[in-house]
Design a binder for these strands. Structure first.
Lengths: 251, 251
DNA sequence: TTCTCAATTTCGTGG
DNA sequence: CCACGAAGTTGAGAA
């Protein structure tokens, strides 16, 4: 780690760090230009520039959640000094994109050999809903039998294909948040495509709630809605002793 | 900036830095737990933890473009030592979410007073297409006259409302990338809503290309497609001397 | 590669 | 606050 390096020192550190596949964290006053699918300009200011070991680049301003500019893993780098500024360029192909960072000064620069082998486990709400439904289909409708998950139907993927007590086909679509018109349309498309193959098909949208517009559309299309919250699903999975980890974090 | 601080030093630096609204960059071995809309676990490894001056939190692994965990601006923090570990918690309300970072050791910690007042300018491809079209509507169809942009139509916003040579209404929808079924459906919705008010309405999807599915749907709905690339639009804007900045970056 | 959908999407805009 | 659409969306998964 180097504090207040001059631009030549910074250049060397960048070059060495990149070729040694270090993760480099540099903070300094810089401007940023991007060109590719779009085009952006950001005049001089203090930012944190991070080049990761896999070639990913993220540049953060001192505020805001998202990086102001970035480049994906596998990007290629060039660094040089021109007109008294340190310039770092990040390239990618397909699509061809380029970021040019022009440093006026560097506050500090840290080329780091970081070790991180842990595997990230994410449990999403929709996963939870689907699992709970497969475990206990009656939370949506009594007598429902799940035929298949993620079934391909023409233009998209149906969450769950089921049979009801009368042997009719039921398409079940899950939304973890309040469902909007788009969700109803998506379900409607699936139902229409399956109906066109001659079967009796019902469509059920499962979500914690519906927008007003979605409710109207749903009714006019004679589709159905079943209210189901993620919380309820977690309780169901807990009761079968499947996800004690999740419940640890519920308060 | 502190190198290899012990946990007590780190705790003090975190507390002071957060209450002084510094941007804090900390690198160290930590585990991360998240609970809120979803739930995630990540066992110990080296990561860069950034707390920004506005309370935003981003945690980056040494690889990958996206942060592994994060919390938006305005989050609240608690830091303490427990069982020989430094724990930093980030809270938000609505939705209620929490991130718990447990440090085993800290490689370095930098509380920074960063100044960044510059304004970010982003030029998107869709902007460019729309501007070029308004400048020269004939790139889509000869004789077209633009009536309004971003016109609200029932459920959404139409990119451009136009009149053709026969005085008929034409809805023009732009997509900067190859357009899919969703784009056709969106256009179809707008056309349907305007037709329901009794007018003759045509719909034109303007994009560099169409997916096969989209092409079929477009035809069956009797909508139209006009091929137009962003590159062409840039040339058009250049020819009117509007965007020399953009052209500087084209190669 | 293309296509489709999810995301702790985030971010803006308008009602 | 809700609703809706764009994003340099990114990312994962399948054909």
């Amino acid at each position: 780690m180097i504090e207040k390096p001059n631009l030549e020192e910074s250049l060397e550190a960048f070059k060495l760090g990149i070729s040694n596949r270090r993760t480099i964290i540099a903070v300094g006053e810089c401007r940023i230009d991007y060109f590719g699918r779009g085009h952006s300009e950001l005049d001089y200011g203090d930012r944190a520039v991070v080049i990761k070991s896999d070639g990913a680049l993220v540049i953060h301003r001192p505020f805001g959640l998202e990086p102001v500019n970035w480049q994906p893993p596998g990007s290629m780098y060039r660094a040089y000094i021109k007109s008294g500024s340190l310039i770092v360029e990040a390239y990618r192909r397909s699509p061809e994109e380029k970021i040019i960072v022009t440093f006026k000064r560097v506050l500090f620069l840290a080329p780091l050999g970081l070790r991180d082998d842990a595997s990230f486990r994410l449990y999403t709400s929709e996963e939870i809903m689907k699992k709970a439904f497969i475990k206990r289909p009656e939370i949506v409708e009594k007598g429902l039998r799940v035929i298949s998950e993620e079934k391909k139907v023409g233009s998209g993927l149906v969450d769950c294909l089921c049979l009801d007590l009368n042997g009719g086909i039921v398409i079940v679509e899950f939304k973890k948040n309040r469902a909007g018109v788009d969700a109803v349309e998506q379900l409607s498309n699936y139902v229409r495509e399956l109906r066109s193959s001659g079967s009796e098909v019902r469509g059920v949208l499962v979500a914690p709630s519906l927008t007003k517009e979605a409710y109207g559309k749903l009714n006019s299309l004679k589709l159905e809605f079943k209210r189901l919250s993620v919380k309820k699903c977690i309780e169901i999975l807990e009761s079968t002793g499947e996800t004690s980890k999740i419940s640890d974090f519920i308060s």
